[in-house]
Write a protein that binds this DNA or RNA. Structure first.
Lengths: 355, 355
DNA sequence: CTGAAAGCGCTAACAG
DNA sequence: CTGTTAGCGCTTTCAG
């Protein structure tokens, strides 16, 4: 009924047309040296002419595996991860691999998803993006292919044994952010955290917040931390907006001069809440984010934040995984420094107490 | 060297263990009715126990095709498209298909990429996201699988014959946006367009702008349109910022009270340029966007824009394609209305001339 | 250097 | 109802 007829040609068709054996064609398209240059040329020209592309399924079946690398993302709606896919596709493609993107819901067990994908797509490796390590050890053991965790939360005190990771030190960099705020003279620093039981990135960053406070002898005031509701989605504008609103409503009794946001997206939501409250950033409240989303530079005021070296992290994660697959190198834990970018959203307080 | 040994088991292993024939296993896992219920149960229990997952490559090879739907995105860095992937994955998955995401560079011929992917991955269908129709007819003809264009620019005057599309009427909705601005009393309306020769979405929206102007007897002043440089990437904050800056620099001689931006992302860049110029939105300049990115609601001022019904469009595109593949329905051209969301970035001018 | 032949794991006739 | 058999298109020994 449709315009059928041009069924994709096979290696056999090419062989017939070229008047050679089927394996000669195979050698030609696979750059096998054991073939006369001119035969190869002849075959290849027919290949081009016929627009022949080898059937991956057949290849993979024969090879008993694929060149697929799974990219499992928890929280794909997060712009931060969205910016990474392209990088992975390029990086992996450069070395002959194909990426298979798969979004994982917040409530799905990411390792189970990985297991299923690994088998179904015969993955050669997996890159986990976002989320956290669910159960200390167990689940990851089941994976048979190499994998690396990229920007997956982890507790540096109990470093992962035998698992490759690429990330920034969420806790440490958060501490640095808060220290910066303190240097600028802020002492009453509110924070928008993740969910209350968050052990993932949100939890790590909150830990950094508390650490910096205690280092500086500032008392931790739980009235200044705004958690996200259990049923909300973390790292969205909306949840940032709502969380900031709660802080702002209680500001009379629990005042603060600076607001640290667990992520840039949350900070943008907070911007809105602050302006709706008739307040100004940074003259009334200084705001600091984390991640370094591109739009932060264009906000007014532009957002002071800890920017994660996304492209470096992507490149490393891809290399680490591929090297592991190709058996060149072994497990590594890479930690990148975030970069504190000073922009307009933080004001130095005049009266800097103590010292 | 590694923890090998647990090589994925095959249908044959299962058969042996269950003491049945190989095809019985095949039938069991494929829900074939021609098999006794209890045999099936027995087989399936072993399947579960062994954690067996059929090898897709073998299946696909046998079936001579896959259940893969390619999603080719031109401009994957554009947040607008990023929000769509998840929807496609869900929508396609619901009907048993798998999505294969592929980013296409601005300078790559998208149909050629499609052709290659189609063969290599044995796609069953393709969804094109973004970009435009390059050469009126030729290239798409080469595709042998069904496909649909989603938010791909097209000239409604010369509707596509035989090609399914899902989009908003970019020209018409832009016209509506400009008419809204005019209703609000604006006559000097600047616009940030795409590249000068842009025949894609950018071009369509610009056409709408001109159309609205002439409908309302407002003279078109090319000094009020800011194109993006040929070598820039369209639809980025940066290009919006730069384009707005040029407009602002010339504002003395070529004044305007409103600025229409070809996309929300561009509008955010413009916001920045405006505030750097010491001006205010909307008191000095009203700004209007197009697309309806989520963050627009949280900007200060929140962005008045034409929001595209993304999830409806995604659902329709997926259904249209799958129906075509399954031969249920045929080619259709779906046009969705955008929704004009009035927010804070447009001010009504007091003195509304004429009428 | 090149061809013939044997599968990779699975499905789909075709016989029991 | 169930088992046997023949490939799907490709890579890869193993002989020419």
């Amino acid at each position: 009924m449709k315009d059928e007829g041009k069924k994709p040609c096979t290696i056999r068709d090419i062989a017939r047309e070229a008047g050679v054996g089927i394996s000669t064609v195979s050698r030609a398209i696979n750059d096998d040296p054991r073939i006369k240059a001119e035969t190869k040329e002849r075959v290849l020209s027919i290949v081009r002419e016929r627009n022949f592309v080898p059937n991956m399924s057949a290849r993979n079946l024969q090879a008993r595996q694929t060149n697929n690398i799974g990219i499992l993302v928890r929280g794909i709606e997060n712009s931060f991860f969205q910016s990474m896919y392209k990088g992975f596709e390029t990086e992996l493609g450069r070395r002959g691999y194909t990426s298979v993107l798969h979004a994982v819901e917040e409530d799905e067990a990411i390792v189970d998803e990985a297991l299923a994908l690994e088998r179904e797509k015969r993955l050669k490796g997996i890159i986990f993006l976002g989320g956290k390590i669910e159960d200390p050890d167990i689940p990851f053991q089941k994976l048979v292919v190499p994998f690396v965790l990229c920007t997956v939360a982890q507790d540096l005190k109990a470093p992962l044994k035998g698992i490759s990771t690429v990330s920034v030190d969420d806790e440490g960099e958060s501490r640095r952010a808060i220290n910066y705020l303190i240097e600028k003279g802020h002492e009453r620093i509110a924070v928008i955290a993740g969910k209350e039981d968050d052990q993932a990135v949100g939890g790590q960053r909150l830990k950094g917040y508390r650490g910096a406070l205690s280092e500086n002898g500032i008392e931790y005031d739980e009235k200044l931390v705004s958690y996200m509701p259990k049923d909300s989605v973390e790292f969205t504008y909306e949840s940032g907006y709502l969380a900031a609103k709660r802080l702002l409503e209680a500001k009379k009794e629990h005042d603060f001069s600076a607001l640290f946001c667990i992520s840039d997206s949350v900070a943008f939501g907070a911007y809105r809440a602050i302006s709706e409250a008739g307040l100004n950033v940074p003259s009334d409240i200084s705001v600091m984010g984390f991640d370094g989303l591109p739009i932060g530079k264009y906000m007014t005021p532009s957002l002071t934040t800890m920017v994660q070296p996304v492209s470096d992290m992507v490149r490393s994660a891809a290399e680490l995984l591929l090297d592991e697959i190709e058996d060149k190198k072994c497990v590594k834990n890479l930690f990148y420094d975030a970069q504190l970018i000073e922009r307009e959203s933080v004001k130095a307080l005049k009266q800097k107490k103590r010292r």
